[in-house]
Simulated scan of single mutants.
Amino acid sequence: MNKQRENILQHYEVSIKFVESLSALIEDQWRSQIAEGKWTIAEVIGHLGPWDEFVLNKRIPYLFSKADLPKGPDAKEMNAESAIRARQQSKEITINQFIEVRTALYETMKQIPETRWEEEIHIGKSTLTLSDYFLGLAEHDQHHFNQILSLRG
Protein backbone atom coordinates (compact mmCIF):
# COMPACT_ATOMS: atom_id res chain seq x y z
CA MET A 1 0.00 0.00 0.00
CA ASN A 2 1.35 3.41 -1.00
CA LYS A 3 1.24 5.47 2.20
CA GLN A 4 1.69 8.80 0.42
CA ARG A 5 -1.23 7.98 -1.89
CA GLU A 6 -3.40 7.14 1.12
CA ASN A 7 -2.43 10.37 2.89
CA ILE A 8 -3.18 12.43 -0.21
CA LEU A 9 -6.55 10.76 -0.74
CA GLN A 10 -7.37 11.29 2.92
CA HIS A 11 -6.52 14.97 2.57
CA TYR A 12 -8.90 15.30 -0.37
CA GLU A 13 -11.67 13.52 1.52
CA VAL A 14 -11.14 15.72 4.60
CA SER A 15 -10.97 18.86 2.45
CA ILE A 16 -14.53 18.24 1.28
CA LYS A 17 -15.75 17.96 4.87
CA PHE A 18 -13.77 21.04 5.87
CA VAL A 19 -15.30 23.19 3.15
CA GLU A 20 -18.76 21.78 3.96
CA SER A 21 -18.22 22.96 7.53
CA LEU A 22 -17.78 26.52 6.26
CA SER A 23 -21.52 26.56 5.55
CA ALA A 24 -21.91 27.34 9.26
CA LEU A 25 -20.11 30.67 8.88
CA ILE A 26 -22.25 33.76 8.99
CA GLU A 27 -22.02 36.04 5.96
CA ASP A 28 -19.65 38.50 7.66
CA GLN A 29 -17.24 35.68 8.50
CA TRP A 30 -17.47 34.22 4.99
CA ARG A 31 -16.67 37.63 3.51
CA SER A 32 -13.86 38.44 5.96
CA GLN A 33 -10.25 38.68 4.82
CA ILE A 34 -7.91 35.91 5.93
CA ALA A 35 -5.33 38.63 6.69
CA GLU A 36 -4.91 42.34 6.06
CA GLY A 37 -4.86 42.94 2.32
CA LYS A 38 -5.56 39.27 1.54
CA TRP A 39 -8.50 37.42 0.03
CA THR A 40 -11.69 36.66 1.88
CA ILE A 41 -12.64 33.11 2.84
CA ALA A 42 -15.12 33.18 -0.04
CA GLU A 43 -12.38 34.08 -2.51
CA VAL A 44 -9.98 31.46 -1.15
CA ILE A 45 -12.54 28.67 -1.52
CA GLY A 46 -13.75 30.10 -4.81
CA HIS A 47 -10.31 29.84 -6.39
CA LEU A 48 -9.78 26.17 -5.51
CA GLY A 49 -12.59 24.75 -7.66
CA PRO A 50 -11.33 26.05 -11.00
CA TRP A 51 -7.90 24.58 -10.29
CA ASP A 52 -9.50 21.25 -9.41
CA GLU A 53 -11.38 21.39 -12.72
CA PHE A 54 -8.14 22.10 -14.54
CA VAL A 55 -6.40 19.12 -12.90
CA LEU A 56 -9.40 16.90 -13.53
CA ASN A 57 -9.86 17.84 -17.20
CA LYS A 58 -6.48 19.10 -18.42
CA ARG A 59 -3.94 17.15 -16.41
CA ILE A 60 -5.09 13.70 -15.30
CA PRO A 61 -6.29 12.56 -18.77
CA TYR A 62 -2.88 13.45 -20.25
CA LEU A 63 -0.44 12.45 -17.51
CA PHE A 64 0.18 8.90 -18.69
CA SER A 65 -0.29 9.43 -22.40
CA LYS A 66 2.16 10.44 -25.06
CA ALA A 67 0.05 13.51 -25.84
CA ASP A 68 1.37 16.91 -24.87
CA LEU A 69 -0.21 18.45 -21.82
CA PRO A 70 -2.53 21.33 -22.61
CA LYS A 71 -1.02 24.67 -21.71
CA GLY A 72 -1.94 25.73 -18.20
CA PRO A 73 -4.02 28.83 -17.64
CA ASP A 74 -2.50 32.12 -16.57
CA ALA A 75 -2.57 31.67 -12.77
CA LYS A 76 -3.05 35.35 -11.92
CA GLU A 77 -5.88 35.72 -14.41
CA MET A 78 -7.63 32.53 -13.34
CA ASN A 79 -7.31 33.42 -9.66
CA ALA A 80 -8.57 36.95 -10.25
CA GLU A 81 -11.59 35.69 -12.22
CA SER A 82 -12.32 33.11 -9.52
CA ALA A 83 -12.13 35.75 -6.79
CA ILE A 84 -14.54 38.02 -8.66
CA ARG A 85 -16.98 35.16 -9.13
CA ALA A 86 -16.77 34.24 -5.42
CA ARG A 87 -17.52 37.84 -4.45
CA GLN A 88 -20.62 37.85 -6.64
CA GLN A 89 -22.16 34.48 -5.83
CA SER A 90 -23.69 33.13 -2.67
CA LYS A 91 -21.76 31.15 -0.07
CA GLU A 92 -23.90 28.10 -0.84
CA ILE A 93 -23.09 28.20 -4.55
CA THR A 94 -19.36 28.62 -3.94
CA ILE A 95 -19.26 25.79 -1.42
CA ASN A 96 -21.42 23.48 -3.54
CA GLN A 97 -19.29 24.12 -6.62
CA PHE A 98 -16.14 23.32 -4.66
CA ILE A 99 -17.66 20.11 -3.25
CA GLU A 100 -18.93 18.96 -6.65
CA VAL A 101 -15.61 19.40 -8.43
CA ARG A 102 -13.46 18.23 -5.51
CA THR A 103 -15.57 15.08 -5.18
CA ALA A 104 -15.16 14.35 -8.89
CA LEU A 105 -11.41 14.89 -8.61
CA TYR A 106 -11.19 12.69 -5.51
CA GLU A 107 -13.14 9.89 -7.19
CA THR A 108 -10.91 10.11 -10.27
CA MET A 109 -7.76 10.05 -8.16
CA LYS A 110 -8.98 6.93 -6.36
CA GLN A 111 -9.23 5.17 -9.74
CA ILE A 112 -5.58 5.77 -10.62
CA PRO A 113 -3.79 2.45 -10.06
CA GLU A 114 -1.51 2.47 -7.04
CA THR A 115 1.50 1.57 -9.20
CA ARG A 116 1.14 4.78 -11.22
CA TRP A 117 1.52 7.07 -8.21
CA GLU A 118 5.31 6.67 -8.21
CA GLU A 119 5.78 6.92 -11.98
CA GLU A 120 7.52 10.00 -13.27
CA ILE A 121 5.40 12.55 -15.10
CA HIS A 122 6.50 15.59 -17.04
CA ILE A 123 4.85 18.96 -16.63
CA GLY A 124 6.59 21.64 -18.60
CA LYS A 125 10.26 21.34 -17.75
CA SER A 126 9.57 19.59 -14.44
CA THR A 127 9.78 15.87 -13.81
CA LEU A 128 8.07 14.55 -10.70
CA THR A 129 5.96 11.66 -9.52
CA LEU A 130 2.18 11.75 -9.47
CA SER A 131 2.41 11.53 -5.67
CA ASP A 132 4.62 14.62 -5.60
CA TYR A 133 2.26 16.48 -7.91
CA PHE A 134 -0.81 15.77 -5.78
CA LEU A 135 1.14 16.38 -2.59
CA GLY A 136 1.98 19.87 -3.84
CA LEU A 137 -1.70 20.54 -4.49
CA ALA A 138 -2.64 19.21 -1.05
CA GLU A 139 -0.01 21.44 0.59
CA HIS A 140 -1.49 24.44 -1.24
CA ASP A 141 -4.93 23.54 0.09
CA GLN A 142 -3.59 23.09 3.60
CA HIS A 143 -1.88 26.48 3.50
CA HIS A 144 -5.24 28.12 2.77
CA PHE A 145 -7.17 25.96 5.23
CA ASN A 146 -4.71 26.91 7.98
CA GLN A 147 -5.29 30.58 7.17
CA ILE A 148 -9.04 30.06 7.50
CA LEU A 149 -8.65 28.06 10.71
CA SER A 150 -6.53 30.81 12.26
CA LEU A 151 -9.43 33.23 11.68
CA ARG A 152 -11.96 30.89 13.22
CA GLY A 153 -9.90 30.65 16.39
Rank of each mutant, 00 (worst) to 15 (best):
residue 135 L to M: 11
residue 137 L to T: 12
residue 103 T to H: 13
residue 96 N to M: 11
residue 135 L to D: 14
residue 99 I to P: 04
residue 121 I to G: 03
residue 92 E to V: 10
residue 108 T to E: 14
residue 114 E to I: 01
residue 118 E to K: 13
residue 76 K to V: 07
residue 88 Q to H: 07
residue 130 L to A: 04
residue 120 E to F: 07
residue 132 D to E: 12
residue 81 E to M: 08
residue 100 E to I: 08
residue 97 Q to C: 11
residue 101 V to H: 09
residue 99 I to Q: 11
residue 77 E to M: 08
residue 105 L to E: 13
residue 87 R to K: 10
residue 84 I to H: 08
residue 134 F to Q: 10
residue 127 T to N: 10
residue 115 T to P: 02
residue 114 E to F: 07
residue 75 A to T: 03
residue 78 M to T: 09
residue 74 D to K: 01
residue 108 T to G: 07
residue 134 F to D: 10
residue 79 N to E: 02
residue 105 L to K: 12
residue 102 R to I: 11
residue 108 T to L: 08
residue 130 L to K: 02
residue 122 H to P: 11
residue 132 D to N: 07
residue 80 A to W: 03
residue 87 R to L: 03
residue 122 H to S: 15
residue 110 K to H: 03
residue 95 I to Y: 02
residue 89 Q to H: 07
residue 128 L to Y: 03
residue 75 A to Q: 09
residue 93 I to N: 12
residue 90 S to L: 13
residue 135 L to W: 04
residue 95 I to G: 01
residue 98 F to S: 06
residue 79 N to M: 01
residue 136 G to E: 08
residue 119 E to F: 06
residue 78 M to N: 05
residue 125 K to F: 13
residue 77 E to K: 09
residue 97 Q to G: 10
residue 89 Q to I: 14
residue 98 F to R: 13
residue 90 S to I: 03
residue 121 I to A: 05
residue 88 Q to E: 15
residue 135 L to P: 02
residue 88 Q to L: 13
residue 98 F to Y: 11
residue 92 E to R: 12
residue 100 E to C: 10
residue 116 R to C: 04
residue 132 D to K: 06
residue 79 N to G: 01
residue 100 E to S: 14
residue 109 M to N: 08
residue 140 H to L: 03
residue 78 M to P: 00
residue 121 I to H: 05
residue 135 L to H: 06
residue 126 S to W: 02
residue 74 D to H: 04
residue 93 I to D: 14
residue 79 N to W: 01
residue 97 Q to R: 13
residue 102 R to A: 10
residue 90 S to A: 12
residue 83 A to W: 00
residue 115 T to L: 15
residue 118 E to A: 11
residue 86 A to Y: 00
residue 92 E to M: 10
residue 136 G to W: 04
residue 102 R to T: 10
residue 112 I to L: 05
residue 87 R to F: 03
residue 98 F to G: 04
residue 101 V to Q: 13
residue 84 I to T: 12
residue 91 K to M: 11
residue 131 S to K: 01
residue 105 L to R: 12
residue 136 G to A: 03
residue 131 S to I: 02
residue 138 A to E: 08
residue 105 L to Q: 13
residue 94 T to N: 12
residue 139 E to V: 13
residue 135 L to G: 14
residue 94 T to V: 10
residue 129 T to C: 03
residue 126 S to M: 11
residue 105 L to S: 09
residue 118 E to N: 14
residue 126 S to Y: 05
residue 83 A to N: 04
residue 99 I to D: 09
residue 77 E to Y: 04
residue 130 L to C: 02
residue 79 N to T: 00
residue 122 H to I: 09
residue 74 D to N: 12
residue 112 I to T: 05
residue 100 E to D: 15
residue 101 V to W: 06
residue 106 Y to I: 06
residue 122 H to E: 14
residue 107 E to I: 03
residue 92 E to K: 14
residue 79 N to P: 01
residue 80 A to M: 04
